[in-house]
């Protein structure tokens, strides 16, 4: 016999035997899948964003099937509609989803800060960050090369005047951008909030002042004026504790009193809320 045949035939035969055994085994020993699984999976948006904390939509659907304690309101992109469907299928009480919107904690656009070098490298924030912390004079701020915009599944982020802007009307709150930003500038904020800090510079006030006119200098004025005690300057940058920042008696006082204007009043109620109101 041809030597090639003596080599190929045994391997093919072994392969066929293995395949046959596997087919028989998988037929005989098939484990019954929970019949609710495909129904639940169908409800979920299928973005596989991981905002629920499980490995993709399949993971969340599986957890819902297997563990009755899994909350039905974890799907942020799907919002209340999905939560309602899920609670109907599983026969549990409807739980409101806290809709979230991504917020960029930097407002140092071209008019407020300057480039320290001319950057001609790869058009990616992660690459630019490796070169002495990016081209801007502030190494904490937005690099403006749009890694977040490229990662956004909804095209909700655009780069304007050198910094990223999130359009809350398009943002589904999946949080993918928060993981891509090399400076960790983007965070998810509940879409009912009205004030945000738009700076992340952790340098001392004088240094911050030098590089950006929008930067938080850590003067703690906001700490003093906040009637709810919700603002705290940590690492030379103001941080709002949104759990305390509710029913403010003197709304917007922090933004009005901010020395550099890095605390701003914004409208975050986006996609989800608009859909609900209609």
């Amino acid at each position: 016999m041809e030597p090639i045949l003596t080599a190929v035939i045994p391997v093919v035969i072994i392969g066929i035997i293995c395949a046959a055994v596997l087919v028989i085994a998988s037929k005989l020993m098939a484990v019954k899948e929970d019949e609710r699984f495909p129904v639940i999976r169908e409800c979920l948006p299928g973005a596989n964003c991981g905002a629920c904390g499980f490995a993709g939509c399949d993971g969340y659907a599986k957890a819902l099937c297997e563990n009755s304690n899994t909350p039905t309101n974890l799907c942020v992109p799907g919002a209340d509609a999905v939560s309602r469907q899920l609670s109907e299928i599983l026969g549990v009480e409807f739980a409101d989803v806290i809709e979230q919107v991504a917020v960029v904690h930097c407002n140092g656009d071209c008019s407020k800060t300057q480039d320290k070098v001319e950057y001609h490298g790869m058009e990616s924030c992660a690459a630019a960050k490796l070169m002495y912390g990016g081209k801007g004079s502030c190494t904490y701020g937005c690099l403006g090369l749009g890694d977040c915009a490229a990662a956004c599944p909804q095209d909700a982020i655009c780069i304007e005047n050198g910094i990223a802007h999130v359009d809350p009307r398009k943002c589904i709150g999946c949080g993918i951008c928060t993981k891509t930003c090399p400076n960790k500038l983007i965070s998810l904020v509940a879409d009912v909030e009205k004030v945000v800090v738009t700076c992340s510079n952790k340098d001392k006030g004088a240094l911050t002042r030098k590089v950006c006119s929008n930067g938080c200098i850590g003067c703690k004025k906001c700490e003093r004026v906040c009637p709810m005690g919700a603002i705290k300057v940590t690492d030379n940058v103001a941080v709002i504790d949104y759990e305390k920042c509710t029913d403010c008696t003197d709304f917007g006082v922090c933004a009005k009193n901010c020395t550099t204007g890095c605390i701003v009043i914004t409208e975050l109620s986006g996609k989800h809320r608009i859909k609900q109101d209609n």
């Binding site: 392969g15 293995c18 395949a19 055994v21 020993m29």
Partner: peptide, 24 residues
């Protein structure tokens, strides 16, 4: 001389089989 390819084939199939059996 078919050792390597046959072993890869058999081990791959075997692990799949064991997984099915264990799952059940």
């Amino acid at each position: 001389y078919l050792q390597t390819i046959v072993f890869i084939l058999v081990i791959a199939a075997l692990v799949q089989l064991v997984e099915i059996v264990l799952k059940r």
